[in-house]
Design a binder for these strands. Sequence first.
DNA 1: TTTAATATTGATAATGATTATCATTTGCCC
DNA 2: GGGCAAATGATAATCATTATCAATATTAAA
Lengths: 128, 128
Amino acid sequence: MQKLTTQRQAILDVINLSDKHWDADEVATALKERNNPIGIATVYRGLAALAELGLIESIQLADKKRYERASKDHHDHLVCQVCGMIEEFCKTEIERLQEIVAREHGFEIQDHQLLLFGICKSCKTGEK
Amino acid sequence: MQKLTTQRQAILDVINLSDKHWDADEVATALKERNNPIGIATVYRGLAALAELGLIESIQLADKKRYERASKDHHDHLVCQVCGMIEEFCKTEIERLQEIVAREHGFEIQDHQLLLFGICKSCKTGEK
DNA sequence: TTTAATATTGATAATGATTATCATTTGCCC
DNA sequence: GGGCAAATGATAATCATTATCAATATTAAA
């Protein structure tokens, strides 16, 4: 179960194109522009399948899910509320503290998500 | 702007009833059961207004927003993927590290959300 | 207090992301 | 080479949330 079909490879290629955080619609549009249109339902299923295979990663924002290429080390995200830009950061110390919290609660962590919302550097300095 | 109408006070009362994390529909149902039905659109707007006034707090889960009563200290959440239970925890050290990350990126934090997904104590020990 | 401006309510329609349905196609195993 | 399991794609359905809008309530001003 969960095959890497030609459609899913095309989706994977698109996501690996850049370090953008793609939503399903953007992936579908990019595929259309590459003259390889894929049905939107297939895009959704393909993204879910690729994430399950560990070939891409996902973050859940308030309104929609976004996908990015898989990276070696786990990271979390800064989300600019002005321009929508998403930056990444690693902080192993935070991960360690999360484990401590979990232990205190008898909780077994399987996944986590840390989002920092605010204003990014370029929006703060008024750049375009 | 943003008045504390009788409807909004009723919504606030419901949320202050317990330390549950309510979604809009549950609040509307609770109000109906108390013989004080309030239109669902008004419930949504009321919850948003109360959160803006700082009288309640919200967390954004994958599918929906949930509201809880306001607490003195900021806290984050453990979400059990088996039973759906939501626990809270405080870890000021994590908050401090978030600020350090932000400074490193020239980012100004306005809000944040940390969710730990996994299996809670009682689900792990097989309780009911 | 009347009047005017403003915000709220509630029923319902609209939106938007995502999932379900289902007939058709593809790929693989024996 | 037929059959089973999974995938595809068009489209309908779902579900939380927001928009619309007429009716009502509240506040401020005259």
